[in-house]
């Protein structure tokens, strides 16, 4: 049956509308859980607030368990899902740049737009920085092109590259997540409380 759009249950013309609706819901939840505060987001790097880690780890966990149960019950075909292509060095370098930006600015691209929506000045400056970065990248694209398009490994998943059973992977992943939550709680207790 699923995924709904590739199998024609929902006509593909709807996918932009659905994307907008999901985007609005995502933005609302981000703002409602306080993710438009750069202090809360940066807390994960300084050890006084691990909400970001917990939220995104839990989201991934719930999604992956749900997807595999739906696949098992025949509501969804895992093999039909979109797998993002891997450009190894592009991903590594991009990840480092994004990480530095995250620590320095206190936002990730999604939450920065959330914060702009509620009128935070630091977020407006941050989004301006994103635009400058996009401009520089576009202007120097011929220089970056070999990295951007090179080291292509195809649409691989951990199941393909490690040869691991996906069900065992989900189980191990959930244990890692719970352990990470416990450790982050312990760290949070030791670090001096910061009021923000």
């Amino acid at each position: 049956m699923g995924p709904l759009i590739p199998n024609g249950v929902i006509p593909f013309e709807w996918d932009n509308i659905i994307a907008i609706l999901i985007g609005i819901a995502f933005g609302f939840v981000l703002e409602a859980s306080g993710f438009s505060s750069s202090r809360k987001l940066a807390g994960v790097f300084y050890g006084y607030d691990f909400a970001v880690l917990k939220v995104f780890f839990t989201a991934a966990l719930v999604a992956v368990i749900g997807v595999y149960y739906m696949d098992y019950l025949g509501f969804l075909d895992v093999n039909q899902l979109y797998v993002h292509p891997t450009y190894l060095w592009g991903a590594i370098i991009g990840g480092i740049i994004m990480g530095v930006g995250f620590v320095a600015g206190g936002f990730c691209p999604g939450t920065s737009l959330c914060a702009v929506a509620i009128g935070k000045i630091d977020a407006i400056v941050y989004v301006g920085g994103i635009m400058v970065g996009i401009f520089i990248f576009s202007e120097l694209y011929p220089l970056f092109q070999p990295i951007y398009e090179g080291y292509f490994y195809g649409n691989v998943t951990l199941e393909d590259s490690l040869g691991i059973n996906p069900y065992w992977f989900v189980f191990i992943f959930s244990i890692i997540a719970i352990v990470a939550f416990v450790i982050s709680d312990m760290v949070q207790k030791r670090v001096k409380k910061i009021f923000y």
Binding site: T58, I65, Y68, Y72, Y167, V170, F171, S174, I175, I178
Partner: peptide, 19 residues
Amino acid sequence: RYKILAAILILLAGGLVLL
């Protein structure tokens, strides 16, 4: 509540392996 939630997650993930 957090312990219960964690237990539910691990149970569900373990269920996938055992199914």
